[in-house]
Structures are given as structure tokens and as C-alpha cells.
Write a protein that binds this DNA or RNA. Structure first.
Length: 224
DNA sequence: GACCAGGCACATC
DNA sequence: GATGTGCATGGT
């Protein structure tokens, strides 16, 4: 086991000891999770929840309903999530990609290999690497590691990665250092987000953080 | 009132 | 290939 593998597992155990297993992405159905992944782009989750609630209230949480809904109506429903015009287009692009090949059967769409899903999702305008990986890990429940702003911040703060690292290098590091287990990847990412939100702020020291005992640079900047 | 929040595509150099 | 910018609401 490499030094990094060992360190990452020790950090994971410290986080689980504090927060418990998180079963992290809120959302009951694959569609809710996939839609949430697009709505969550650079947006506070609270605002995403309002938008999702609007979609449920409008009784339109199905591929077909979303496919048939006029853009203006969809935009109004997801308005609380911000960027509502671009996100309407992105949602429509995603829904169309599913509908055109699998109709209303999102589960069928998702029940394919990780590489196939990555290829098809990344081909959708508006779905980038994080959104695609979030859908694959949390909606399709397949083994791929999701890298987000908190992943960068926490790993950078703890000197696991450096300023030269990018999405692919961090993803590769995590996937090669951890056991290939979708449940572990799911929970690990959830733990990193929880740590990031609660303790790993831009400037403040991380007092009380369960990772406090691990080597870290309290003054390290956040972004890659 | 500034700053931040679970990105992405596109323009420009 | 790297860097900059628009997109927008709502909480702290």
C-alpha cells in the first residue's frame, strides 16, 4: 500500500469517526439525482432543493414530462437554483439525450458501462466532468470518483495534491489509491464535502476539524 | 453590501 | 494551451 493510499484511508477513518457514514447525495430516484447534479452547478444546495421541490409540485419528475415541458415553464420552475436560463438548456439537452435513445427509461440509460456513460454524458452540452461523474456515481451507482471544488480544497490543504493538479489527475490519484468500491467513493466524496463546508473555509483556520491532526497548511489557498 | 455556493461553455489572446 | 468572462438566485 502506498503512502498516499495509507494517508487517504486514515483521513477517511477520521472523518467517518466524526460524521458516520453519510449515504450522501440527497435524492430518492436516479432522475432526481441527475437533475440535481445539473441544478447544483456552482450553486448552493439549498437553492437546488427549492428548484427540485418546484419540479415535484408541478408533478413533472419524469423524463417524458420534462421532455415535453416548454422551456419557459421549466425555466420558471428551476429559477431558485440560479443560472436558470443556461440550466434550462442543459437540462433539456440531458433529457433529450436520454429520451432519444431510451425514452422514459432512465434506468436503462444508466445501466451501462462507466466508459459508455462518460462518453455519452460528456457529449451533452452543459454536462462537464463533475456533473457526469456525479450522475455515474450517485444516480447510476457505478464506481467512479467525483472531484469537486471541496475535493481540491481539502486535498490541497492537506498537501495530498499541489497547485499543478487538475480534475483528471486528482480523479486518477483517488481511483488508484483507494479500493475500487462505489460505496466507498460515494461516502468519501460526501465526507470531503462535509469537511469542506464545515471547516475548510477560504481563510479561517480549521479549528475542530477531524483532520486537524493530519499535516496541513492552514494558509493554503483554495482553488487549484 | 460583499462574498460565497457541490460548473460549464465559449471568446480571446 | 492557458486565461478570462457570463450566467443568477439566495444565504451569511
Amino acid at each position: 500500500m502506498s503512502r498516499t493510499s495509507q494517508l487517504l484511508m486514515e483521513m477517511y477513518e477520521a472523518m467517518v469517526a466524526r460524521f458516520g457514514r453519510l449515504d450522501w447525495w440527497p435524492g430518492d430516484s436516479p432522475l432526481e439525482i441527475a437533475v440535481g447534479a445539473i441544478l447544483a452547478q456552482n450553486t448552493n444546495w439549498r437553492n437546488v432543493e427549492k428548484a427540485l421541490a418546484n419540479l415535484f409540485d408541478a408533478d413533472c419528475m419524469s423524463i417524458t414530462a420534462l421532455y415535453e415541458m416548454p422551456q419557459e415553464q421549466l425555466a420558471e420552475l428551476i429559477r431558485p437554483a440560479g443560472y436558470y436560463n443556461v440550466k434550462t438548456k442543459r437540462l433539456k439537452n440531458f433529457i433529450a439525450a436520454v429520451y432519444d435513445s431510451f425514452g422514459d427509461d432512465l434506468e436503462g440509460f444508466l445501466d451501462r458501462s462507466v466508459s459508455t456513460l462518460q462518453e455519452e454524458l460528456l457529449a451533452v452540452n452543459g454536462i462537464g466532468r463533475e456533473t457526469a461523474d456525479s450522475m455515474i456515481l450517485y444516480a447510476a451507482k457505478k464506481t467512479t470518483f467525483v472531484v469537486d471544488t471541496y475535493t481540491f480544497r481539502v486535498l490541497y490543504r492537506h498537501l495530498i495534491i499541489g497547485p499543478e493538479d487538475d480534475y483528471e489527475s486528482v480523479k486518477e490519484l483517488m481511483e488508484s489509491s483507494l479500493p475500487a468500491d462505489a460505496d466507498l467513493f460515494n461516502d468519501y466524496h460526501g465526507q470531503l464535502v462535509t469537511i469542506g463546508k464545515k471547516y475548510c473555509k477560504k481563510t479561517a483556520k480549521c479549528t475542530g476539524c477531524p483532520l486537524e491532526s493530519f499535516e496541513h497548511d492552514p494558509l493554503a489557498g483554495i482553488e487549484q
